[in-house]
Amino acid sequence: MDRCFYKALNGPAFGLVLLMAGTGPLRAEPGVLSATITPANTRIGFTINGIGWPQTRGVFDAFKGRLRVDFAHPAKSFVSVDIRAASVDAGGASITSYIKSSAMLDVAQHPAMNFRSTSVRRTSAHSVALTGLLSFFGATHPVTFTVRVLSKPGQRPLAFVATGAIQRSAFGFISGQPLISDTARITIASRGRGL
């Protein structure tokens, strides 16, 4: 798979790809994809279970990140994302304002969330384990995401889905417990422009 990507990225499309990605210094690194993560190509969502209420789903609408995928040396890949907590949307004004309030995410007190990867390890031909530090609710803890690559080797755009889970209590975010579960699942799906 790397080899195919490598070939594709060495082709005439490579320069165009980097332009599309529109990130930082456009240094021609063969076999490396640098891209910007924005709501145009990525969806960041969460789900959380509760007692007496169906699973709650939500997304974050405002975030920006950088993605560097080194296909030949996955361990050299890197991801960072900054999320604006107040951009949370749970599909309704009433429930969204409750989630933003001091009873829940308290976005006034904790306006930013971010993730910085610390290690990337290939787990199969189509997946990697991405570990990094998640800062959220005033605490920072490691989180590991399982990243499944959906796009075929050598095909663009790159498409992937990253899933991970956090224990809210580790971050001191215990609001609503035990009615609202301690585990929150995070899903990041990327596809499309610039990837």
């Binding site: 789903r57 749970a90 429930i95 969204t96 409750y98």
Partner: peptide
């Protein structure tokens, strides 16, 4: 009602 936003609003 299955839509969580509508459901939450109806509770209020």
């Amino acid at each position: 009602v299955s839509d969580q936003g509508l459901r939450f609003m109806l509770y209020q």
